[in-house]
Design a protein around this nucleic acid. Sequence first.
DNA 1: GATCGCCGATAACTCAGGTTATCGTCACCC
DNA 2: GGGTGACGATAACCTGAGTTATCGGCGATC
Lengths: 262, 262
Amino acid sequence: MTNHDSCIIRHFSHYCRLSEQDKALLHELEESPRDVRAGEVLWQENEQATEFCTVSRGWAYSYRNLGDGSRQILEVFLPGDIIGLREFAFSQRLAGVAMIDDGVVCHFPHRRLLDIFRQSTTLTAVLFSISSRQQALLTERLVNLARRTAHQKLAHFLYEMYVRLDQTGAATDGRFRLPLSQEQLADTLGLSAVHVSRTFSAFREEELVLRERHKVTLPDPEALANVAEFDACYLNDSVRPIFLEEDAAAMRPSNGAAALKT
Amino acid sequence: MTNHDSCIIRHFSHYCRLSEQDKALLHELEESPRDVRAGEVLWQENEQATEFCTVSRGWAYSYRNLGDGSRQILEVFLPGDIIGLREFAFSQRLAGVAMIDDGVVCHFPHRRLLDIFRQSTTLTAVLFSISSRQQALLTERLVNLARRTAHQKLAHFLYEMYVRLDQTGAATDGRFRLPLSQEQLADTLGLSAVHVSRTFSAFREEELVLRERHKVTLPDPEALANVAEFDACYLNDSVRPIFLEEDAAAMRPSNGAAALKT
DNA sequence: GATCGCCGATAACTCAGGTTATCGTCACCC
DNA sequence: GGGTGACGATAACCTGAGTTATCGGCGATC
């Protein structure tokens, strides 16, 4: 088991120092990588759900198709994210998932999550934290959709992506790659594609956002955050390291004995 | 430990048969009941978060205050629900919580959740399921807010409440108590209070919904569900009993020995 | 290098829902 | 029993965003 740079482990390490045993458990989630093409549908609403999925490379999104032919994008997944956690309690998919980009994903069965619950309190707590953070993103998007103007919605989304990408080093100096089309943005923000275009034009005018093809530049990120009334609280998932460290310490004695080679 | 009818245990039992030990663990969550009055704020955004909370009686809601003075209600909690699970990863509250009704709530420290992770895989799985279901509610509300008309939003909300209440026996024959004011409904649905009123008038006209004070009657629930394009999938959390039973069976040997009196 | 198809920009027109304001009703309380 | 205040209904008016349509640019395919 070469520790060939794993997105998941990097992601989990954000939350907590991991034992070797924990890392081994996580590695099992990435056993069967599969290449996927942009636009490829990983699964659809109402299909039987027996697996989760991790993204190793590329972007993905989950979506719901509505009765009137429109569609709502719910979440955008980046490398290191786990897809499908939200559906833990359900035997059917509640949302479809498709790739934005070419990429690599790894499927693993539901069962594996129970193994983790049973074998590592630390990982269980981290999984709960991740799920909790995803819910925070969702909540923020909800507020955004319910209460803000088109300008604020787009500003908020762009700034959120900027922060998320910055946290993983994928944004430098206000510039980042945003592989979504304007139609996908519209489906995310509950707007029409036309109005997304209008709003980008306005932002260009005001020199808040420059966009060419899939490259976005924010000349003044803070100004954008202000437009969006952005409160970064929900992204700085302080993650309460103390809390988790205590916990890790508390459980190490019992699990340490069974640990794999150090 | 008298098994004086506990909402939480009833709630959890929905998902899975519980051992006596599991019940004992859950009972600890309801150790310190407190009477609360309608309108009382349990906590506010950005306060330090060190506790979760269960609702034993009454309704509650979580909300976010926006920059422009408006506010968005995120979730409505009924007796048996756990409040604050969403915030597991955070040290600050992401949303305020207030009572709709007079009621009884029980606070318990974060730490207690870790005890559960450590001591019961069954309860851990159920907690994950509950969190997953809450997220499904949130997602459905998001779609609702982003993509549907005022009529659909209100119809959807009313029908959802009807189903949730029906599941706990609190709705009979299309009639139930709905203690929210039109302003609270507006804050939930991302509408103005005026427009909620208009929409109720329209529903009265069409004989879809009758509302007097806090009593709501749905003469034809199915018709309402149709207006809302309601797909009950996300509420019939099949909850995959098989899955959990297998799991419970798998872990019983190790924990059974330490079980409390049967 | 001509054709096709996708993506994005822009303009003209429409409409769902917000805003403001007024009024009626009910509950509560000296 | 009259004052007060929260809640809800209704009307008139306004506006942000949807809809439809047209056009230009760019990449892929032959």
